[in-house]
Simulated scan of single mutants.
Amino acid sequence: MAFGSIISRTDGSWGQNIHEAYLYITEKYPEVETTFTDLIPWGELPTWMELQGEKKTDLLYLDSGATVFEAVTEVAPKYPDMWFITGGGGVDINAQLPANVIMYESQQHEGSYLAGVAAGMMTETNKIGHMAGFDYPMIVRNWKAWELGAKSVNPDIEVNNIYTGAWGDPENDSEVGTALIDLGSDVLFHDTDSLSIFKIAEEADVWVVGVHRDQSEYAPTRVIASALANHPLQAEQGLLDFMAGTIAAAKEVKVYGVEAGWPVITSLTNVPEEVKAKVEEAEEAIRTGEIVVPEILED
């Protein structure tokens, strides 16, 4: 099983969570031979995938379907016995992928909704801010769910949203984060592949919501929660389906969230007990189906 990402294993976010998936599988399933490669240049993804095919690799675990779409569309048909697993990407993208490309989708927008509930209760300005590299459907889905969660407890919420036009650009992200604060946002949410937002939050004494993995270590006194991508669990589910011979049946996007018992948000920190109680109440409502968090894929 080979893990590959265009992002660094030390980015503190998406790339690191994929590396954590590799470590998790390696430790829990010692009988499975695993490898990990990060910082694969986007244009060299097809070459890297073909190399895995020549090595007779059984499973590849990759970035999102949107990120690797062109590469897997080109390479997967050449290696029909190798399974390509993408870490989410959306039903619309999955329908266009080759038969041996399987998408496992953690319901990160449910975690984003719950973080929004907390944000709606923690804001003092009734303005919260979101920043991300681009308006990918998965990213829009998450921040729109965050907005819905905030407005469920505070209808007066106003969301300031800015796309930075880049991934992992700390200087640019610092400028955008500062701009959001200047607009009055006192709770921030991000998907940028940099950690600039945490330093900004500490300096400005505003709250921040992490993404993909627990990011509380980067601003221990300002992070209130992180919405989880769950790459370790997605990789494990793909491996188990492969080992059981049922992976082909997973071609229809498999989604895992609160109802399936997957964690979608970290424990809340730096918030009053009434905020924790309200988030727990909302999570239970999602579990029972009383709340269905919609997937809004366009701004």
Rank of each mutant, 00 (worst) to 15 (best):
T35L: 02
F36G: 10
T37F: 07
I40W: 10
I40P: 13
I40V: 15
P41R: 13
P41Y: 06
P41T: 08
G43S: 10
P46C: 12
P46L: 12
P46Y: 10
W48A: 15
M49Y: 14
L51I: 15
G53L: 12
E54S: 13
K55D: 10
K56D: 14
K56L: 06
T57S: 12
D58F: 00
L60R: 09
Y61S: 13
V68W: 02
F69R: 15
E70G: 06
E70N: 11
A71Q: 04
V72T: 07
T73E: 03
E74V: 12
V75W: 07
V75R: 10
V75A: 08
K78S: 11
P80K: 04
P80V: 01
D81N: 14
D81C: 00
M82F: 03
W83F: 11
W83C: 01
T86M: 05
T86P: 01
G87A: 14
G90K: 03
V91Y: 12
N94S: 13
A95G: 00
A95T: 00
P98N: 00
P98A: 03
A99Y: 02
A99V: 08
I102H: 01
Y104I: 10
E105H: 13
S106V: 09
Q108S: 12
G111R: 03
S112H: 09
S112Y: 03
Y113E: 04
Y113P: 06
Y113M: 05
Y113I: 04
L114H: 05
A115Q: 08
G116Q: 10
V117W: 09
V117T: 12
V117P: 11
A119S: 11
G120F: 05
M121K: 11
M121R: 08
M122S: 05
M122I: 01
E124R: 13
T125E: 04
T125G: 06
T125K: 10
T125I: 04
N126V: 05
N126S: 11
I128N: 08
G129W: 04
M131E: 05
A132F: 03
G133V: 04
G133Q: 01
D135W: 00
Y136V: 05
P137Q: 06
